[in-house]
Design a protein around this nucleic acid. Sequence first.
DNA 1: ATGCCGTGGAAACCACGA
Length: 256
Amino acid sequence: MRIATYNVNGVNGRLPVLLRWLEETKPDIACLQELKAPHEKFPLEAIQNAGYEAIWHGQKSWNGVAILSKVGPITEKRRVLPGDPEDLHSRYIEAEINGILVGCLYLPNGNPAPGPKFDYKLNWFQRFTTHAASLFKMDIPVVLTGDYNVMPTDLDVYKPERWVNDALFRPETRAAFHGLLSQGWTDALRKLHPDEKIYTFWDYFRDAYGRDAGLRIDHFLLNDQMDKRLISAGVDRNVRGWEKSSDHAPVWIEIK
DNA sequence: ATGCCGTGGAAACCACGA
């Protein structure tokens, strides 16, 4: 079974690319972020025609997350990250599919840092970490995947020294990610490719993709039951080179 | 060092992204 994550950067603007990617790689479950569409503008019909069921949490202009499945019903568990009723951003959705718990997240960017947006990011991260602790102990396989907006280590940035003061790489952000990992989660891509340069995002400008000036910010975190089933993992980096592509590439894992 | 590009929505520019 293949589970994928893809920050589409606009689900309607990206629809041809999204459908082509679904058709070519046929993920069984796909988590999407940055829909940038309100609930009623989600392209459900096109996605159903591609063979998928979907649940989503849209929002006008920004954010937005979805879970797609072609392997049975999606039982939604929650569509809001607990801990702050005043947080109205659509950044989290969670479902059970075929006995697997899937959390799809779009963690805040946080720039400029320091400042209120960075505070929001760290707050959101703390709330997510609290929620993740309860999920880790569940008696079923759990995967938390999406755009974490964190490069965990120097190996995950083309030029670490340029990013030390950026919200995606500041010490507080990396500490938050490693605090989350310390609950026991496995970073699937890094586990299977410990020394490899792996990127999931390349800026649109300055030919970042052509220069391979990338970042690894889209991640798969697995609890022990899921980790036991992990076979392989990778990035569909060629998709980033397609016409009208997102600035992210899809990331995937293969499980037993 | 920098939204230089791209998206969406409102309005012919702005917010936001990483």
